[in-house]
Design a protein around this nucleic acid. Structure first.
Lengths: 330, 330
DNA sequence: GTCCTCGGTCGAAGCGCTTCGAATGACGCA
DNA sequence: TGCGTCATTCGAAGCGCTTCGACCGAGGAC
């Protein structure tokens, strides 16, 4: 059973090969009757264009690469949601997705790009000083990053607007009447590294709180139970009037609740807690939270990449955070 | 900056295009000196073969499709481990991975296969009566399934040897001196559907237990807490001397522990519990368990697929289960 | 010395598709 | 009636690579 080629379709429909091509691509006007005849033949013969031939002739593979950080410690639900959304959205634009793991590093990227296997790249979870970033800059293929590297100049990035997320949490607590609030952030080293999202969250939180005349502090927070507990204790010792807590540290969320219980402070009766973390964690602990919009991130990332493939300019975008109110604030 | 083609390499090395091709593919003998000269040119020019052209000429895309069930309710860690292992193994065989979600259904499979985009397919979590199975049977492209559909005749499947897994659990309990043991299995409907792995586990469990002269029963088990609790209670009412429990139901594992606690039976002091479930669940609850070897499944699946791509016959394989002893048995 | 063999290399014919320029008619207008 | 126009359609030239058959000398067998 030989595979059906465009020539077979042309013969069957009684037209030239190029006519079939134009019917399928819509790049030239074809009369309605011819068009229909060709489409019928396509259906009857069960024709599917050969991807390789198409890519070779058109210089477009209709495939994008998705580079995932498939290493331990990633938040899996977020990652899967993201991947699912990328695949689904890409299909809407008639593209397929080539899956790569970050551990092939820059070489892997160079390889798929140079081989014209993909038209563009989507990289998730780029690090602040990522060795792949300079490469992306002078690659002919467009790319979109999820997350912001240290220097995002000239790159297209998509991320949650963490500044606004911090502000949103502060505003939520303020509206509920809390006057003295605190942010438990990422571990010290994360700030030292100059990680963008941690800093931006803190800045947004402090600015909003201050703007509303609240008393607010922000402290870093390690991830073991003992360290979290002592951080929480110190916080309440120094600020006995504290009634609102924002936790921006996935790993510490669970421990914070334990620590509060140990201190005899009830949530939400004595202390309101807002988390900035993936949905599943917040959901499990019934925490009011700003979630990581993985689905939307994937969709937007693909949209931007497709725009760049069409030669359109595409700036970075920050997604607006949304607060989901659960049982940990009042 | 035009991209470097094989013709550029040939010119640079002073040989024919075909010679470069043969050096790169190794399909014909080339003298050491010529060979070296070509390889040098390749390096100097930074040549990467164009994937489309290669696929077109050779009828091999060097890409395999990975069809994942990216729906809610999947065990994510297992899925990710699997995907990671597939990508890594495929790379070892010089192949890339096209990611697809199951919800494109049979059409998606037909599409990528007919377009010669991929050379073979890997489908995870095929259902017992999967509409894609008949399609796979008469597809020219080889495929490998993870899990066994109702009729696996003529298909290549990879899965954990659940029969042996059931036996292993029974044996473990027997060796620890338990004389009366039970299997809490999948929900009733799963058996009614004739789901292979559930039945095989039960058969293996009962055969091994009986063979060792134990008193063993197997009961299905629903997944809500109340139903689990009542199943457990009924079990102990009917068999007061029960001291060993095998749970083959991911969703119920947590509830079983709760139910035992509610009945005042301590684990492992009064009852030993063995689970057949993904590593993360067992790890979290510190349960002795037979784990789902996702990493190995991925590796073996790719290995089989590559064998089929080389025209070798490839039968289904069952992976040998391994028991990890944790704190729930004594 | 002649013929054959064989390792090593070359040339050219596609693989199936896109795309550009040109050909073909039909039609309207002068 | 003749000619320009426009809408359609066609033909052919690649895209970059693999692969088949052929070619070419050098060495061995006789």
């Amino acid at each position: 059973m030989r595979t059906v080629t465009i020539a077979d379709v042309a013969r069957h429909a009684g037209v030239a090969v190029s006519t079939v091509s134009y019917v399928l691509s819509g790049k030239r006007a074809i009369s309605a009757t011819t068009r229909q005849r060709v489409l019928d033949s396509v259906r009857v013969l069960g024709y599917h264009p050969n991807a390789g031939a198409r890519a070779l002739a058109s210089k477009r593979a209709n495939v994008i690469a998705l580079v995932l950080p498939l290493r331990a410690g990633m938040n899996l639900p977020v990652l899967m949601q993201f991947a699912t959304s990328v695949v689904a959205t890409a299909r809407q634009y008639d593209h397929d997705v080539l899956l790569m793991t970050a551990d092939e590093g820059p070489d892997g990227i160079r390889r798929v790009a140079a081989s014209a296997m993909v038209d563009g790249l989507l990289l998730m979870d780029v690090e602040v000083r990522d060795t792949r970033v300079p490469l992306l800059r002078d690659l002919a293929e467009p790319s979109v990053l999820i997350g912001f590297p240290a220097d995002a100049e000239g790159l297209t990035c998509v991320d949650l607007d963490f500044n606004q997320a911090g502000a949103l949490c502060a505003a939520h607590l303020a509206e509920r009447g809390h006057r003295e609030i605190a942010l438990l952030g990422a571990p010290e080293v994360v700030y030292e590294r100059g990680t963008g999202f941690a800093e931006r969250t803190r800045a947004g939180f402090l600015a909003e709180a201050t703007g509303r005349g609240l008393h607010a502090v922000a402290v870093p927070c390690e991830e073991t139970y003992d360290e979290v507990a002592s951080a929480v204790k110190l916080l309440f010792d120094a600020h006995p009037g504290l009634t609102g807590l924002v936790v921006h540290n996935e790993a510490a969320v669970g421990h914070v609740l334990g620590a509060l219980r140990a201190l005899g402070r009830a949530v939400p009766e004595d202390v309101s807690v807002v988390a900035i973390c993936p949905d599943d964690i917040a959901e499990r602990a019934r925490l009011t939270s700003v979630l990581i919009p993985a689905e939307e991130l994937g969709r937007e990332a693909v949209r931007l990449l497709m725009a760049k493939l069409d030669g359109l300019p595409a700036g970075s975008i920050l997604l607006e955070p949304r607060l989901t109110i659960r049982e940990s604030t009042r």
